[in-house]
Amino acid sequence: MTSYRVVDCRTGVADAGEVIVDSAISPEDAALKATGETLVRSGRRADLRVRVYFQHAGQPMSMVRLYSKAVDREQPPERVRRRKASPAGLAVGQPGG
Protein backbone atom coordinates (compact mmCIF):
# COMPACT_ATOMS: atom_id res chain seq x y z
CA MET A 1 0.00 0.00 0.00
CA THR A 2 1.18 3.52 -0.81
CA SER A 3 1.55 6.15 1.88
CA TYR A 4 0.92 9.77 0.97
CA ARG A 5 2.68 12.70 2.65
CA VAL A 6 0.46 15.79 2.40
CA VAL A 7 2.31 19.08 2.95
CA ASP A 8 0.19 22.18 3.60
CA CYS A 9 1.34 25.08 1.38
CA ARG A 10 -1.14 27.76 2.45
CA THR A 11 0.48 30.97 3.58
CA GLY A 12 -0.50 32.39 6.92
CA VAL A 13 -1.65 29.08 8.41
CA ALA A 14 -0.35 28.81 11.97
CA ASP A 15 -0.38 25.01 12.23
CA ALA A 16 0.77 24.31 8.65
CA GLY A 17 2.71 21.10 8.46
CA GLU A 18 2.51 17.67 6.99
CA VAL A 19 0.26 14.68 7.46
CA ILE A 20 0.89 11.04 6.52
CA VAL A 21 -2.18 9.35 5.03
CA ASP A 22 -2.10 5.56 4.56
CA SER A 23 -5.71 4.87 3.65
CA ALA A 24 -5.97 6.84 0.39
CA ILE A 25 -6.39 5.66 -3.18
CA SER A 26 -5.00 8.78 -4.91
CA PRO A 27 -3.18 12.03 -4.08
CA GLU A 28 -6.52 13.87 -4.29
CA ASP A 29 -8.09 11.40 -1.85
CA ALA A 30 -5.14 11.83 0.53
CA ALA A 31 -5.52 15.62 0.39
CA LEU A 32 -9.27 15.34 1.03
CA LYS A 33 -8.64 13.17 4.10
CA ALA A 34 -5.88 15.47 5.39
CA THR A 35 -7.52 18.85 4.77
CA GLY A 36 -11.21 18.22 4.23
CA GLU A 37 -11.05 20.13 0.92
CA THR A 38 -11.69 18.78 -2.57
CA LEU A 39 -8.64 19.88 -4.56
CA VAL A 40 -7.65 19.68 -8.23
CA ARG A 41 -4.35 19.23 -10.10
CA SER A 42 -4.37 22.49 -12.03
CA GLY A 43 -4.74 26.06 -10.86
CA ARG A 44 -3.15 29.40 -10.17
CA ARG A 45 -0.07 29.71 -7.98
CA ALA A 46 -2.12 31.74 -5.50
CA ASP A 47 -4.55 28.80 -5.14
CA LEU A 48 -1.89 26.21 -4.22
CA ARG A 49 -3.08 24.33 -1.12
CA VAL A 50 -0.94 21.21 -0.74
CA ARG A 51 1.88 19.16 -2.19
CA VAL A 52 1.39 15.42 -2.00
CA TYR A 53 4.45 13.12 -2.06
CA PHE A 54 4.12 9.39 -2.68
CA GLN A 55 6.11 6.43 -3.97
CA HIS A 56 4.72 3.30 -5.57
CA ALA A 57 6.73 0.07 -5.16
CA GLY A 58 9.75 0.06 -7.47
CA GLN A 59 9.12 3.64 -8.64
CA PRO A 60 10.84 6.95 -7.85
CA MET A 61 9.27 9.45 -5.46
CA SER A 62 6.48 11.50 -7.08
CA MET A 63 4.96 14.83 -6.12
CA VAL A 64 1.61 16.36 -7.11
CA ARG A 65 0.57 19.96 -6.49
CA LEU A 66 -3.10 20.39 -5.67
CA TYR A 67 -5.06 23.63 -5.88
CA SER A 68 -8.41 24.93 -4.70
CA LYS A 69 -11.13 24.82 -7.34
CA ALA A 70 -11.89 28.00 -9.27
CA VAL A 71 -15.44 28.10 -7.86
CA ASP A 72 -14.05 27.91 -4.31
CA ARG A 73 -11.90 31.01 -4.56
CA GLU A 74 -13.17 34.53 -4.03
CA GLN A 75 -14.28 36.26 -7.20
CA PRO A 76 -12.93 39.78 -7.90
CA PRO A 77 -15.53 42.56 -8.04
CA GLU A 78 -17.07 43.10 -11.47
CA ARG A 79 -15.71 45.94 -13.50
CA VAL A 80 -18.15 48.55 -14.74
CA ARG A 81 -17.64 49.34 -18.39
CA ARG A 82 -18.45 52.91 -19.30
CA ARG A 83 -19.20 54.22 -22.77
CA LYS A 84 -17.16 57.08 -24.08
CA ALA A 85 -19.06 60.28 -24.68
CA SER A 86 -18.93 61.54 -28.23
CA PRO A 87 -17.74 65.09 -29.02
CA ALA A 88 -20.27 67.83 -28.34
CA GLY A 89 -22.35 65.45 -26.23
CA LEU A 90 -24.05 63.83 -29.21
CA ALA A 91 -24.92 60.17 -29.06
CA VAL A 92 -22.98 57.92 -31.38
CA GLY A 93 -24.93 57.22 -34.59
CA GLN A 94 -26.87 60.47 -34.58
CA PRO A 95 -26.40 63.05 -37.33
CA GLY A 96 -23.49 65.31 -36.58
CA GLY A 97 -21.96 62.83 -34.11
Rank of each mutant, 00 (worst) to 15 (best):
D72A: 07
M61V: 13
A30Q: 07
T2F: 00
E37W: 12
H56T: 05
V21Q: 02
A34V: 13
G12I: 11
Y67G: 01
A88Y: 14
S3P: 00
R44S: 15
D29I: 10
V92N: 09
Q59E: 00
G36E: 06
S26K: 10
A91F: 11
A31E: 03
G89N: 06
L48S: 02
K33M: 12
D72N: 10
K69F: 01
E78R: 05
G93D: 01
P76M: 03
I20H: 02
E18T: 13
G17A: 09
R73P: 08
Y67W: 03
V52Q: 05
P76C: 00
T38Q: 02
S23Q: 02
G36A: 03
G12L: 12
P60V: 10
R5T: 15
V7A: 09
G17Y: 06
Q59R: 09
P60G: 10
A31Q: 05
Q75M: 12
V21Y: 02
Y4K: 00
A16Q: 10
L90S: 11
R73S: 14
A85K: 15
V19F: 09
A30Y: 04
D8W: 05
K33T: 00
E28T: 06
G96K: 07
P60N: 14
E37L: 13
V92R: 15
T38E: 06
G17T: 07
R82P: 02
R65P: 07
M61Y: 04
G43Q: 01
T38N: 06
V6P: 04
T2C: 01
E37V: 07
H56I: 00
A31S: 14
Y4E: 02
R79E: 08
E37C: 14
Q59N: 04
E74I: 14
S62P: 01
A31N: 04
A85E: 13
A46F: 06
S68D: 12
S62V: 03
D15Q: 12
V19G: 05
R10L: 14
P95R: 10
P87A: 10
L32S: 03
L48K: 03
R73W: 07
A14P: 07
H56L: 09
L90M: 14
D15T: 15
G58T: 09
S23P: 05
V50Q: 09
Q75I: 08
G17L: 05
R83N: 14
V7S: 04
A70H: 09
E18V: 06
Q55K: 13
S62W: 02
T38V: 11
M61A: 06
P77K: 07
P95N: 07
Y67P: 04
K33I: 05
P60L: 12
K69Q: 14
P27V: 01
P87E: 10
R49G: 09
Y67S: 03
V13F: 13
G17D: 05
C9M: 15
S42K: 13
L90Q: 13
R49P: 00
R5C: 13
P60Y: 08
D29K: 03
A88E: 07
E74F: 08
S3C: 04
S62C: 10
V92Y: 15
T2Y: 00
R44N: 14
